[in-house]
Amino acid sequence: MPRWNALSDELDPSLRELVTRLRRLKDRSELSMRQLAARTGYSVTSWERYLGGRSLPPGRAVEALARIGGADPVGLLALHEVAAEAWAARRAKGPAPARLSAGERTGPAAEREPAGPAAPAEPPAPVVTATAADAPSTGRALHVALVAGAVALVLALSAVFLLVLRFHPDSGATAATAPLPSAAESSSPPAYTCRIERTEGLWTAGINSTRDTEVSYGDVGPDVAEAQCLLRRAGISPGGIDGMFGPLTLRAVKDMQKKSGLVVDGMVGPRTWKALRG
Rank of each mutant, 00 (worst) to 15 (best):
R195M: 11
R195D: 13
I196M: 14
E197D: 15
E197M: 15
E197T: 09
E197C: 15
R198G: 15
R198W: 13
T199G: 12
T199K: 03
E200Y: 05
G201C: 00
G201I: 00
W203P: 15
T204K: 07
T204G: 13
T204W: 05
T204M: 05
A205G: 14
G206N: 05
I207W: 02
N208A: 03
N208Q: 08
R211K: 10
R211Y: 08
R211E: 14
D212C: 00
D212T: 06
T213Y: 14
T213K: 12
E214Q: 08
E214Y: 09
V215P: 15
V215G: 14
S216V: 03
Y217F: 14
G218F: 04
G218D: 07
G218V: 09
G218M: 09
V220T: 15
G221E: 06
P222G: 05
D223E: 11
D223N: 02
V224E: 13
V224D: 14
A225I: 02
A225E: 11
A225L: 09
E226Y: 04
A227T: 10
A227K: 15
A227F: 09
Q228P: 07
Q228D: 03
C229H: 01
L230W: 10
L230T: 04
L231Q: 12
L231R: 15
R232W: 05
A234Y: 02
A234N: 07
G235R: 08
G235I: 01
I236H: 03
I236M: 00
S237G: 10
S237F: 03
P238N: 08
G239L: 00
G239V: 10
G240R: 03
G240H: 00
I241P: 08
I241H: 05
D242H: 05
D242E: 06
D242T: 06
D242R: 06
M244R: 11
M244N: 10
M244K: 06
M244V: 10
F245H: 12
G246P: 08
G246S: 09
G246E: 11
P247K: 00
P247S: 11
P247H: 00
T249H: 07
T249Q: 05
T249R: 03
R251D: 13
R251G: 14
A252E: 08
K254L: 11
D255V: 02
M256L: 12
Q257R: 06
Q257V: 01
K258W: 14
K258Y: 15
K259A: 15
K259H: 14
S260R: 07
G261K: 00
G261T: 12
G261A: 11
G261M: 03
G261C: 00
V263S: 12
V264W: 12
D265K: 08
D265M: 01
G266R: 01
M267C: 05
M267P: 01
V268E: 09
V268L: 05
G269N: 03
G269L: 05
G269K: 01
G269F: 07
P270T: 08
R271M: 04
R271V: 04
R271Y: 07
T272W: 13
T272Y: 00
